[in-house]
Design a protein around this nucleic acid. Sequence first.
DNA 1: AGAATAGTGTCTCTCAGACAATATAGG
DNA 2: CCTATATTGTCTGAGAGACACTATTCT
Lengths: 221, 221
Amino acid sequence: MVDEAAFPRPILTIDVILLTLGAEGLRVGLISRAGAPYAGRLALIGGYVHLEEDSDAEAAARRIVAAKAGLAHVFLEQLQTFSGRARDPRGWSATVAYYGLCPPGDLEGAKDVIFRSADNPGPLAFDHAEILAAALARLRGKGAYSTLPAFLLPPTFTLSQLHDAYERAMGQPINESAFRRKISELDILERVDGAFSRATARPAMLYRLRARTVQAFDRRI
Amino acid sequence: MVDEAAFPRPILTIDVILLTLGAEGLRVGLISRAGAPYAGRLALIGGYVHLEEDSDAEAAARRIVAAKAGLAHVFLEQLQTFSGRARDPRGWSATVAYYGLCPPGDLEGAKDVIFRSADNPGPLAFDHAEILAAALARLRGKGAYSTLPAFLLPPTFTLSQLHDAYERAMGQPINESAFRRKISELDILERVDGAFSRATARPAMLYRLRARTVQAFDRRI
DNA sequence: AGAATAGTGTCTCTCAGACAATATAGG
DNA sequence: CCTATATTGTCTGAGAGACACTATTCT
């Protein structure tokens, strides 16, 4: 890093790929763009960094998700930075992309957010389709050997729900007994008092994650 | 991304963690800083984005590595963006970090670059120690299930050299016969005519990577 | 009792690590 | 032949998938 402070500075933005679980699989939260460019197009939840307010890019992402989707607590992880002269007609820009995972129940207050199938969201503004695809690839890659999919669930959940979250996040079936075996061997969950009861079936034990952060495993789940 | 073009723009830089293989393990290429801040301290190879010249951040990274380390062809992959108010005394900044892998032989022309043990490089400028640690973690994590360590070798190599590169990159022993078995099953290498001959031992067959890009595996190597 | 979901036990096949055995060069 | 490195073969234990079986609640 050499001192050449006179260089023109590029535009720096933040984009959040907000993902949640729907009945059919992953869903992504989008916002309809008010102004040009791409007015009326759906876009990822994004904004500028506020230098006085935001201590770093992740703080900016949290502020933006809170402001635009009304979400106070989201699991956020940096995905990648997308940059270049071509991606925004206003000029050379860079956006630091974060993916955010949250349980479906937390999305009541997200009035302006439109949820679409993550795998088939329709046309998006800028290079957001590419960014979304990268987020899905990361989630599916990392989900196979980490607790990432658990952050798509509420704080307490049953093993069946966890299994379901893994299957829906990964988009492929996972052997159930092997899943239970591995989860219990990995010792990443702890029992919570009470049980989750459905309409017409046996109630299941409730668990929560032992750690609040993502845990990666040696082998895939 | 809302239009608020009036916002002050943060400083955006690029940093490259240039890694290569030494006898003792991984080595990182550093440059002694000429000016303030951190004058005289060792720092990662970095610089500003040139908006007219660089089509995107990776192009900027390539230009910077070519200019400061004299390397025309390096394997580069984006690591992460580090940002915040505190990391640079000159103000809120963001740096897009790339790690670069290259074979030891390519480093003849890198006059200004100082190589240090990657695991113990001594004090570095800015938050570069943290960035380097993240690069090593990524290389070791991803190296276990990809062809990443092969990019620390010249274009053609023997299986023993590849095995050695994996062990040195990962910092831990790898069972040799299992390694050979997995490599051959994965079908990522192809034979090259000729053989590599040492002083006083059996010459070994030469291989090269089938694909020019990193290949990830299902299971760890 | 029967339906529906939760949870367990077990069999088999594959794969990874350990390590022995064999191969091929130079001295 | 001896040494050093390369390469292959085999044995064994752990783990993953398949799937049947048991458990518990509600109607």
